[in-house]
Amino acid sequence: MAAGDTGMYRKERSVPLKSSSSALYNNLSVLPLRDKQLTYFAAVHGSIVSLASASADGLSVSHRQLQAKEGGLAVSASIVTQASWCVLPSRVLLVLTSQKGIQMYESDGSIMVYWHALDVLEPPPAQAVFARGIAAASGRFICVGTSSGLVLVFDIPSKGTNITLSEVLEEHRDSITDIASEVGENPDGAAELVTADDSGTLCVWRSKEEFSLLTKISAFGWTCSSVKLWNGVIAAGYGNGQIRLYEAASGALRATVNAHSRWIYALDLAPLTGKIEHCLAECVTDTQVCGARFCDPEGNSFAATGYDLSEIVRYGPA
């Protein structure tokens, strides 16, 4: 273990999971509930999503497991590719993507409110079919990517189950890997959404009544596995270990961070900090890290999952 000079973080009590985490990009979602002094965690393993609700000290943990199925009443399980909470002004939904489709639940996973099946009549030989990449956008939409490169835009009512597929964005030619939206207030006409794919291409979108393409950032030979959008800046993690910062409006490359020697599986930002700073370097021994998320918007704490690790590793302020 090598600690950063600033010593901003220290390891805290881990949160146990009912099952381990699969080796998937961005395999951790975190939902802080400050009014309840709780944090929700979600990680994927096979056809199961493990949910854990933990107190701040990690001493009190409750669990729930969700299984992705073909439909509301179907019995055959489907491999889950991602689980993520989408925070909208009027409600919070837990969204699951899988080989069969997209499920949306109330935030605690107790009630499924929507199911969307992937329309696959005759997939080409040796081509996997799945959904992956989840983000809330523009206050009323949830955007979900697919293996065919489509981005599905769902219009979410303030309550109830009357969720509709309002638009399909057709710009990518490769499987969507990740989707991110601007956090907080957004000036009119500015970038609101960024979508990434297996080839490394990024598409930047803005929304009025419909989404329109603002700019397209070309691939350079590596998959973009994880992407974030903040204050008009795109942070993108790639298969060569680079993090690249782009200006969202123009697509201009502003900086590269060459700190990792291998594939980046997860990337996150704390929206209330507004800087890149080296704070900690730590090796989670014999573990392939597959998910990482800040647990609060100030960036005071974060958590990580690892392949075949039946716990969520947490770090808090030193």
Rank of each mutant, 00 (worst) to 15 (best):
residue 214 L to V: 13
residue 109 G to V: 04
residue 106 E to I: 08
residue 196 A to S: 15
residue 187 P to E: 08
residue 126 A to I: 01
residue 211 F to V: 02
residue 121 L to P: 03
residue 196 A to N: 03
residue 167 E to V: 00
residue 183 V to K: 14
residue 107 S to G: 00
residue 184 G to D: 13
residue 116 H to E: 04
residue 168 V to M: 10
residue 105 Y to V: 06
residue 162 N to W: 02
residue 203 C to F: 07
residue 106 E to F: 04
residue 136 A to L: 04
residue 186 N to L: 11
residue 98 S to C: 03
residue 164 T to K: 14
residue 191 A to E: 13
residue 146 T to Q: 13
residue 158 S to L: 05
residue 105 Y to T: 04
residue 116 H to L: 03
residue 210 E to H: 10
residue 160 G to A: 14
residue 136 A to I: 03
residue 147 S to T: 07
residue 212 S to A: 13
residue 159 K to D: 10
residue 129 V to C: 11
residue 201 T to H: 13
residue 119 D to K: 15
residue 184 G to V: 06
residue 195 T to K: 01
residue 200 G to D: 11
residue 168 V to K: 12
residue 171 E to M: 03
residue 151 V to S: 04
residue 102 I to W: 03
residue 195 T to V: 09
residue 134 I to Y: 02
residue 98 S to W: 05
residue 156 I to H: 13
residue 171 E to A: 09
residue 181 S to F: 02
residue 181 S to G: 14
residue 149 G to W: 02
residue 129 V to N: 11
residue 161 T to D: 15
residue 164 T to H: 09
residue 146 T to V: 04
residue 125 P to L: 07
residue 120 V to H: 07
residue 153 V to W: 10
residue 205 W to V: 02
residue 202 L to K: 04
residue 186 N to C: 15
residue 194 V to K: 06
residue 99 Q to L: 06
residue 98 S to M: 04
residue 138 S to L: 02
residue 217 I to D: 09
residue 134 I to K: 02
residue 122 E to M: 06
residue 107 S to Q: 14
residue 198 D to Y: 10
residue 196 A to M: 11
residue 187 P to K: 04
residue 99 Q to N: 12
residue 202 L to V: 05
residue 135 A to Y: 01
residue 110 S to E: 13
residue 130 F to C: 06
residue 142 I to A: 01
residue 155 D to I: 06
residue 203 C to H: 11
residue 186 N to M: 12
residue 100 K to T: 10
residue 190 A to N: 08
residue 146 T to A: 15
residue 181 S to D: 10
residue 208 K to W: 06
residue 116 H to R: 03
residue 142 I to L: 00
residue 170 E to Q: 14
residue 133 G to E: 02
residue 100 K to V: 04
residue 179 I to S: 01
residue 179 I to T: 02
residue 200 G to Q: 12
residue 208 K to P: 00
residue 164 T to A: 15
residue 124 P to H: 07
residue 142 I to R: 03
residue 105 Y to E: 02
residue 158 S to K: 14
residue 165 L to D: 08
residue 162 N to F: 09
residue 209 E to P: 01
residue 207 S to T: 10
residue 192 E to W: 00
residue 136 A to T: 09
residue 100 K to I: 01
residue 160 G to K: 14
residue 216 K to H: 05
residue 123 P to M: 03
residue 214 L to F: 04
residue 124 P to K: 11
residue 122 E to W: 07
residue 170 E to V: 06
residue 185 E to S: 12
residue 125 P to I: 03
residue 111 I to F: 10
residue 217 I to K: 11
residue 160 G to F: 14
residue 211 F to T: 05
residue 185 E to K: 06
residue 99 Q to P: 01
residue 210 E to C: 06
residue 216 K to A: 14
residue 125 P to K: 09
residue 118 L to H: 08
residue 144 V to I: 15
residue 217 I to L: 12
residue 174 D to M: 14
residue 102 I to H: 00
residue 185 E to P: 03
residue 147 S to Q: 05
residue 133 G to K: 02
residue 147 S to C: 05
